[in-house]
């Protein structure tokens, strides 16, 4: 197991190098020049040239890449082209917002997706099953952007139950410590702020949870159906155990193993989905920041944040693999 973990960790390095090359070349391939974007429509070509030179954008692209990667290895993700701020501290400041949203979303997806999957499988072919399957399909194919706007419109504008965006009330004097606002409100025992933060969390996390929820529900259903047809389940039923005990105690544990993999894989799509959700709900996380930075051709931010997100995805997937072995004694890595 330990050997596997070490070997598995080493595979991360080429993956990240690959990501860095891809991100670097993609953003340089998008037409448009950061100097022009920075200086606006009214800049003279001379000034744009000067800025390009200053940013090192006049050098060959391979040289730019090597310079960049050299710094990355030393923990320096560069400085924002537009604002001149170092990228890494900015990532770390925004990341808690994204984590808070993504974790809430995945929890919602699990809490709703697994029971829906179980119910669908147990009452296969019933109205509940058909309904759940249609909803799962709709969920997977629903554009988050549209869903987010609809949620904001219905629950924010028409019903006025929940805020349409942000993490807290405008102009609040609450000062976060860790930037995990929910955690901070608890640490500071500011219950009004906690309620405020929770209210702001509802709509974006529901929007972001939709796709993983649908995927988890479908996966749970398929996996549950397979498990329920196994011999040992029939044995358990033959022994006269109640349906609930058979499903929850005997089948569910095994059925959830593949779901675990899916959750690991969903982390990537959650972070990708966060770009849209954060933009619609003005959520101050990494996703929206990257979206805005692409518009302003802020290479340093887009590269730094992409690399950071890649690290997270790769590490989470690695952990999922290891966790798999931990929960399933049948699996050995040698």
């Amino acid at each position: 197991m330990r050997n596997y973990a070490i070997r598995r960790s080493f595979t991360v390095i080429p993956v990240l190098l690959g990501v860095s090359v891809l991100v670097f070349s993609f953003i340089h391939m998008i037409p448009g020049d950061p100097a022009s974007v920075m200086l606006g429509e009214k800049a003279t070509p001379e000034r744009a040239d000067a800025v390009r030179k200053q940013l090192g954008l006049d050098r060959p692209i391979a040289e730019q890449y090597l310079l960049y990667i050299g710094k990355v290895v030393r923990g320096d993700l560069g400085v924002s082209i537009v604002r001149g701020d170092p990228v890494l501290p900015d990532i770390l400041r925004r990341f808690p917002a994204t984590v808070e949203l993504a974790v809430t979303a995945i929890m919602l997806a699990l809490l709703a997706g697994v029971p829906i999957g179980i119910v669908s499988a147990v009452w296969r072919g019933s109205v509940v099953d058909s309904f759940a399957r249609v909803w799962a399909l709709v969920g997977v194919s629903m554009p988050i952007f549209w869903l987010g706007l609809m949620l904001a419109w219905i629950f924010g504008v028409e019903l006025r139950w929940l805020p349409t965006g942000f993490r807290m009330e405008a102009g609040t004097s609450f000062q976060p410590i860790t930037n995990f606002v929910i955690l901070d409100t608890v640490l500071e025992r500011d219950w009004a702020a906690l309620v405020d933060a929770l209210r702001h969390l509802v709509l974006p996390s529901v929007a972001l949870a939709t796709i993983p929820l649908a995927v988890i529900a479908r996966m749970t259903r398929a996996s549950m159906l397979e498990t329920l047809s196994r011999d040992y389940i029939r044995t358990a039923q033959a022994k006269g155990l109640s349906g609930r005990v058979v499903v929850l105690h005997h089948a569910l544990g095994n059925a959830l193993l593949p779901v675990l993999t899916v959750i690991g894989l969903q982390v990537g799509s959650l972070l990708a989905g966060a770009i849209l959700t954060e933009t619609i709900f003005s959520w101050p996380g990494i996703g929206r920041w990257v979206y805005e930075s692409i518009g302003s051709r802020d290479y340093a931010i887009v590269q730094g944040a992409s690399l950071f997100i890649a690290v997270i995805v790769v590490v989470v997937n690695m952990l999922t693999d290891l966790l798999y072995a931990a929960v399933d004694p049948r699996i050995k890595y040698d």
Binding site: L149, A152, W153, G156, P163, T164, G165, F166, I280, S282
Partner: peptide, 17 residues
């Protein structure tokens, strides 16, 4: 407040935020 999306910004106004 920074509300990047035009529709979301209008929603915030109509919601009284």
């Amino acid at each position: 407040r920074n509300i990047k999306d035009n529709s979301a910004r209008l929603a915030a106004l109509k919601a009284g935020e």
